[in-house]
Amino acid sequence: MSEILTFLKTIEEEARSAIEKADDKTALDNVAYSYLGRKGKLAEVSRGFGKLDPGIRPRVGSRLNELKKTLNELITQKAGALTSVLESKDVFDYTLPGKRSPVGRRHPLMQTADRMVQIFRGMGFSVATGPDIDTEFINFDALNTPEDHPARDLSDTFYIKKGILLRPHTSTVQVRTMMAQKPPVRIISPGRCYRSDAPDASHSPVFYQCEGLYVDERVTFGDLKGAIIQFARDMFGPGIKVRFRPHFFPFTEPSAEYDFSCMICGGNGCRVCKNSGWLEISGAGMVDPEVFRAVGYDPGKVTGYAFGMGVDRITMLRYRIGDIRLLYENDVRFLRQF
């Protein structure tokens, strides 16, 4: 080994011990200056570089670089240890917080939507999507909604222009899917929906729905019940009960509303379920023959069920959120909980 390399080795050892011994900031600064400064020991070696045997120069060069880097690191480390008032020199304080890398969060609505998709996919549903802005035909006519039905009113639904509107439900995706594809069809359609509701604790003009549709030969109301019950158990646990109450929708016959037993009080009655033990979830029913006619299916050959489901509603129940606006404000203090 050449003389110069041995010399560098000695410098390194000296420097290491000097850094080690420095017990305050000034002492450390002095060490840094005497080794790494413009007139420091390493600079001195560099200045002599030209006089070296050319054969050895690259090795000395890289050794020099390496050494600079090492010393710099050691000094920075030591400086960190010295400046840190939290860490005393000798006592190992394990109660100091760990060095955590940043953790992100998925939005609770999206976590819930993912879970829902996962459950329904397990039942053989695929995920279909469609435009938020759609025609009045797809939104209402094809769904057997009477021409003067209040849902078509300007006071209920946002219009872009006459005949074009922001969908109030994702049934539009069902219509589009049926128009594009022969039966059997088994889909869920998560997506944003719009209604002209002033925002309050339980309303948002933009909200998130997930509707389902299954059309095939011999699909029955019993199948509808089975699908919803299975979903409820998967989502909220095996103890959950489901009940169906007759209701009315233009696009289904028979129509139902379905409730889940209150997961907060276990069905015994509490503030959330208004002491009824039941929580209203959404509507469902057997697809009306008129809808099949509108999309070109033969109502004599197929039957089907459809159901609605509010992703926001399920999310709010899942995490006991009392105000829907929290879901859309995107306050990171709120989102960090999920």
Partner: peptide, 24 residues
């Protein structure tokens, strides 16, 4: 619908279909 609701939705047995490929 009349028959279903008077018979009682609760008296219609739920059917649990196996999942399976329908383009899922």
């Amino acid at each position: 619908e009349e028959i279903a609701r008077i018979h009682g939705f609760e008296n219609i047995p739920p059917v649990f279909r196996p999942g399976g490929a329908l383009g899922a």
